[in-house]
């Protein structure tokens, strides 16, 4: 992120980052990735487990789309501190969520 704006005086048309094309592709993909889980859930197309996996995968793909097409994570110069920090952050975040679920399974209260 830190770098992609630095030399953008050249205009946004030279492919790669920040072009209209990439924003449009990203937007279309994000719409599609929202519609798929919506349709799957509203029409009860699959079993509960399959649907859960499907919509979580769609959400993760959507995240990747935002990251690649809107936030331009690919354009970072080395050393890629932004990417490293993000990965570390995601690992810790997943630990918090998965760890809590795992530990609290044994400590659930009566609902």
């Amino acid at each position: 992120m830190a770098n992609h704006n630095a030399h953008s005086g050249h205009g946004g048309h030279e492919g790669g980052h920040g072009s209209m094309k990439s924003y449009v592709i990203g937007f279309v993909l994000s719409i599609v990735l929202t519609i798929i889980p919506l349709v799957a859930v509203m029409n009860d197309m699959f079993s509960k487990q399959v649907t859960t996996v499907l919509i979580l995968v769609m959400a993760i793909l959507q995240f990747a789309v935002q990251l690649l097409f809107f936030m331009h994570i690919r354009d970072e110069k080395k050393p890629r501190f932004n990417l490293i920090a993000l990965i570390f952050g995601l690992v810790i975040m997943l630990t918090i969520v998965a760890g809590s679920i795992w530990i609290m399974t044994y400590n659930a209260v009566a609902t």
Binding site: G18, S19, Y23, F27, S30
Partner: peptide
């Protein structure tokens, strides 16, 4: 979702 896209266009205009 659309507003995320439009904020991207704003960036293009700025550049």
């Amino acid at each position: 979702l659309t507003s995320s896209f439009t904020s991207g266009i704003a960036l293009l205009e700025m550049n």
